[in-house]
């Protein structure tokens, strides 16, 4: 049995509310911030104290899949991904870290909430990168293309008669039992499901199976939300496949 050991690789610098961020906050005047971070940047006690000194209330929560509060993973992209819905209660979402993969999850997590069906209700996410001291905002526009494609893909799935279900052998993302359950559900609907197994999926190889009309991803959910814009064949995630009508309602 292989033992496993994790090292956070915490950022060694001091994470402060820089002058640039302070100016941004003074312009936007948030009263309540929902704060999230990548694990490398999640030691934020001093940062939170500095925000509170600016008379800003800071809300934090724990994502269901993470080990610690504040931290967010790319798969925390559903409206029920957090112990407490601080996104709903805040007037600004702030993510501390670099890259776009994690903070985009905070946009995706707002889709499907009843009151957020209208795109203008999706709150933007402010990205603060302590490495470059940059402050920028991402918003609905940054996920619009993939959401439109995701919605179209669900409609195509509902009409597909031969469905390919992708299952990875990576233990943390392996959902063979869900794939089998979906195959049974499809059979009950008079459709045929084929389960495909691999380690990492080369999405270019989907073209090798032209008899598949729609793919269902059971691995990392971001494959079914982000990578779909780079492939021709429709693909949706397993949760949407179990209940496509609800998925369409969520997309609005």
């Amino acid at each position: 049995m292989v033992e496993l050991f994790f090292v956070d690789a915490k950022f060694e610098g001091k994470i402060v509310v820089s002058e640039r961020l302070k100016k941004f906050l003074q312009e936007k005047k948030p009263q309540t911030i929902a704060l999230f971070a990548a694990v490398q940047f999640s030691a934020l006690d001093d940062f939170i104290f500095a925000l509170e000194t600016l008379k800003i209330k800071v809300l934090t929560t724990k994502a269901k899949r993470t080990a610690r509060p504040l931290q967010i993973l790319g798969c925390d992209c559903y409206s029920d991904s957090f112990q407490e819905d601080i996104i709903d209660k805040c007037d600004m979402i702030v993510y501390v870290g670099d890259g776009l993969f994690h903070p985009k999850a905070l946009l995706l997590a707002q889709i499907g909430k009843k009151k957020n069906k209208m795109k203008e209700k999706v709150k933007p996410v402010v990205l603060f990168d302590p490495l470059s001291d940059s402050v920028k905002e991402i918003n609905y526009k940054d996920i619009e293309k993939q959401l439109l494609k995701a919605k179209a893909n669900v409609k195509k799935y509902m009409h597909a008669e031969r469905v390919g279900i992708l299952v990875t052998i990576k233990p943390g993302q392996q959902y063979l039992h869900s794939a089998k359950k979906l195959k049974e559900q499809l059979a009950a609907e008079g459709k045929k499901g084929y389960i495909f197994i691999d380690n990492t999926f080369d999405l270019g190889a989907l073209e090798n199976y032209p008899f598949i009309q729609c793919w269902v991803n059971t691995a990392c959910p971001r494959i079914g939300t982000d990578d779909i814009v780079n492939i021709n064949k429709p693909m949706i995630n397993i949760l949407e496949a179990f209940d496509p009508i609800k998925a369409l309602e969520n997309f609005g």
Binding site: F5, D8, V39, R65, T66
Partner: peptide, 11 residues
């Protein structure tokens, strides 16, 4: 033993 950097335990 496998050691992974940059992440921690997830559920």
């Amino acid at each position: 033993l496998m050691i992974q950097w940059g992440h921690n335990r997830f559920y």
